[in-house]
Amino acid sequence: MESDEQLYIRVRGGDRTALAGLVERYHGPLLKFLSRMTGQTQSAEDMVQDTFIRILTCRGVPPEHFRPWIYQIARNLARDYFRSAAFRRETFYLPDEDQGDDWMAAPVETESLALQSSDCVQVNALLQCLPARQREVILLRFYQEFSLEEISTITGAPLGTVKSRLFHGLRRARMILEQEEVGQDE
């Protein structure tokens, strides 16, 4: 089977079949990643399209490793989305003081996950309770199965920071889930 990198080189040569191949491989995974990241399917659809447009309009040197690269683009678009005026209007926005940076979706209040109608929505509710920086690391590790080194490349954060975000994110997610279970028992 042709590698992503080979397909991408053909795409840059204007090959429609290669483009269809890349879309086939990445449309679903990117949509899932961005939907979980933003909690918004429609915005995620738009971002997937933007991600592909970016790789098509890229004039730089083709990436050595295509998969981390395309996720890096998607992740950056998600970051832009959190910074966008539209997002700030729609949500309660707080700067991430712990990280000394200003992009982070304000974690939503822990609502009762049990009130959500499906498993998918339940998980989404839990993920949206996490700070975006922790959420993206968990998503890239658990669902996309990137190594922590690759996640470090994608997010531009040092490996130690990635580990720390994963650790704190998991601890927080576990705590929320346990609280939810206690609430259900009561």
């Binding site: 899932k32 498993d119 998918c120 998980v123 669902y143």
Partner: peptide, 13 residues
């Protein structure tokens, strides 16, 4: 528990 909970989400196809 957390891992199995996360696994239940198959994502948006």
């Amino acid at each position: 528990a957390l891992a199995h909970f996360l696994e239940t989400d198959l994502g948006t196809e």
